[in-house]
């Protein structure tokens, strides 16, 4: 993981993080909750899009646009509304890393 990502992820936490390991697991845990809809390892079957391997910049912009309303959406507007830009960055880096 890049240093930049680690810094971003560390910024998400409420308590000070002891190790990079903990930051990584926290990001994985946040991202994993998306996979109940988007499929194991980010690979979806059917109408819901896959997240695995999405380019990070694309993911982050899509989420910001869902949140602002710039991109028309149904359920994703309600989801994006609850997340921070730093979380979009951290999740985007993680999903981009999934093969």
């Amino acid at each position: 993981m890049h240093k930049k990502s680690i810094l971003l992820i560390a910024g998400l936490s409420f308590a000070a993080l002891g190790t990079a390991h903990a930051a990584d697991l926290r990001t994985q845990a946040i991202s994993a909750t998306c996979l109940s809809c988007h499929g194991p390892n980010g690979k979806s079957g059917g109408a819901i899009p896959s997240l695995a391997g999405l380019e990070k910049g694309y993911f982050v912009q899509a989420m910001k646009d869902f949140k602002s309303g710039a991109r028309p959406a149904s359920i994703m507007k309600k989801h994006a509304a609850g997340y921070t830009d730093a979380e979009f960055e951290a999740m985007g880096a993680y999903f981009a890393s999934l093969k």
């Binding site: 936490s13 845990a29 946040i30 609850g82």
Partner: peptide, 20 residues
């Protein structure tokens, strides 16, 4: 699961900050 992994390793539970 994330917190149990940490607790079994002697660390405090992870506070997953957001869930949907």
């Amino acid at each position: 699961a994330a917190s149990i992994v940490e607790m079994l390793a002697g660390r405090p539970p992870i506070s997953v900050p957001v869930v949907a």
